[in-house]
Each structure stands twice: as C-alpha cells, then as structure tokens.
Nucleic acid binder design. Sequence first.
DNA 1: GTCTATAATTCGATAGAC
DNA 2: GTCTATCGAATTATAGAC
Lengths: 185, 185
Amino acid sequence: MAFTDRSLPAREAILSAARSRFATDGYDRATVRAIAADAHVDPSMVMRYFGNKRQLFALTADFDLRLPDLTAVPCDEAGHALATHLISRWEDDEGLQILLRTATTDDDAADRMRAIFAGQLAPQIATITGDATTAATRAGLVATQALGLVLCRYVLRLPPVVEMSRAEIVRWIAPALQRFLAGSP
Amino acid sequence: MAFTDRSLPAREAILSAARSRFATDGYDRATVRAIAADAHVDPSMVMRYFGNKRQLFALTADFDLRLPDLTAVPCDEAGHALATHLISRWEDDEGLQILLRTATTDDDAADRMRAIFAGQLAPQIATITGDATTAATRAGLVATQALGLVLCRYVLRLPPVVEMSRAEIVRWIAPALQRFLAGSP
DNA sequence: GTCTATAATTCGATAGAC
DNA sequence: GTCTATCGAATTATAGAC
C-alpha cells in the first residue's frame, strides 16, 4: 500500500479529477475511465492506487464544514456569522456538491451527510442555544435552509438563486438562520 | 400506440411500480427489470408499452404543485397558507421525490425542476407581491427553503427533521416563507 | 399480447507482459 | 510502475416464436 514518490503526482491528479467528476456527475455517472482520462492516466492505475471506486469516492467525500466559533460572536449576530461563513465556504469548495449529488440516491453518502450534520453542525448549535431540548430541532431547521440554498444555487441552478450576489444572499438568509438559531416559532 | 383494455391493468401496475422505484432509487439505479418485477410483468412489456426507460420516467416525473390561490388569503397569511399546503402536498405524493432524487445528476430532470419553479411557483408569487422587480428573487428564496425541507425530511432523512410533526414544521417554516414572500431583508 | 433468447453496450475489476 | 488485453457482470433494447 506504499507507493514511491514518483507516482505521487499521478495519484494527486487522479484525486483532483475524481473530485471534479464526482462533484458534477455524481457517483454512478462518474466512471473510472473518465476520471483516468481527465488525469491523463491509465484506468488500471486508478484501481492500483485506490483499490476500487468506492474507496476513491470515500477519499474525495470527507467534507469539513470548518464552522467558526459561533460562541465568540454576540448571540444576535450568530445567524449573520453563520451565513457569511457558509456562503464563502461553499463557493470555492466542491466537497459539499460531491456529497449532495450522490447522497440523494446512495445511502452511504447520505450517512455521511447525516454524520456531518450530527457531528459538526448540531453540537455547535447546541452550545450557543442554551436550551438542550430544542437544540436538535433548531439544528435541523438550519440544515433545511442551508442545504436548500446549496441545492438551488449550485446543484439545480435555479436562475434567480444563481443570479443573486453573495451579499444579497447573506442579507436574506442570515435573518432566517438567526430565527432558527435563537428565535421562536 | 393504442393498446387493448386488457393490458390496462398491467400498464397501470408498471406506472405505479416505476413511480416507487424512481422515487426511492433515482433514475439510474431504478432498473427496468426491478420495475417489471414489482409490477409482476415481463421486462419486455415495459418497453413495449412505454417505448424506453426515458419515456417511462417522463410519464412518472410530471409533478404539479397544485398551488392554492394565494391571492385569496390576506397578504400576511400567505406564508402560512403556502407552508400548510406544501407539507400536505408532499407527504402523500412521491412526485417531488422522483424529480429531486434524479435532478441532482440528470440535466433533463433538473430542467423539469426549473420549469416547475418558473411555471408554477414564480408566477403565483409574482401576483401576490406587487413588485415585479423582486418577485423572481423572492420566488427563488422560497424555493431554497421549500426544497431544502423536502431534501432534509424525505430524501436525506436527517433525524431531527424527520421527527418533527407537521404542525411543528408549519409553525417554524411559515414565518420564514412569509418573510421571503412579503418581508424585507 | 406474452415471453424466451439474445444482441449490443458499458462498466468495474483483474491478469500478466514489459 | 505502466500498459494491453480481457473477463464477468449488469444494463437497455430488440427479434421472433408461440
């Protein structure tokens, strides 16, 4: 399982090509052959370096939200801080697209989405909302708005959502997140 | 293209099975064989009755939001009316799941989603918000929250979103939709 | 109308020469 | 390490007997 340094550029080219293919085509339609062609590499090399297609996908599909410390900002600004962070985090990283595009049909990928939600988003939200009983619900509501934005803007590409500027999106979405985080129904 | 009455039960069984399979597995993983097996029919009959897999999918994937007349309710209750309608519309109809599960990887299905948005949702919203300049943006924002809910509750099945009752969801989502419909950022 | 048999592709994965 | 050749499985789709 240890490879020489000379194969490292090839392995990285494969990983990069895989990320792009999985992000745009999803797991099923992103073929090993296409990934190899993008990386200017023989298809058999993909299997040799990464074992099989599933393991290659797993390496490209570990996404880290890298949430900022929301407890560091005033409670009534948490929604704005979260909105600005998410929009910049997603604009230049295709990691969430990779997961979202295949999580709708693949249960492994859906499990990863649930894990990201439970492991990264929910705990952070639980700490800033003192109430432990509503924290899980609030985190779920935040997910509906946040993932809905990713879905419409980057995956489905609904024209009006694509055409909005980052600043416009933050202006509209931040208050929605704020209400889910600390407001009342 | 005209078939006898005796084949009608079989054709309807195929359509029903196709709807379920496409809704749970997406277009690629829902095989003609599996659909035929569910319908207790020979796979070749599926092709004979519906031509090919694409045409069968097209028949199962025409989704009608059946939006109520939002101009009939007071302007400040539009969000609540929309939320209650959508949640009941989606709970017992797998049509939107069919589209959403494959629209993330299939451009034809994504086009259908954009068409539903542009043809059914946006015009309705344009009529209740007098301002024509912001109507498209508002409709897009409504889509992010509405589709995000469908995604998290029915497709990804995030536990806290699944466990919420319909009433709870309406209580939280209605004000969010109301703000997108008629509020200000 | 129904079913068997099979064509024609495509894909993931492997064996083995160099 | 790299590449050629190919296997085996699965899929959509068709041809033709009954």
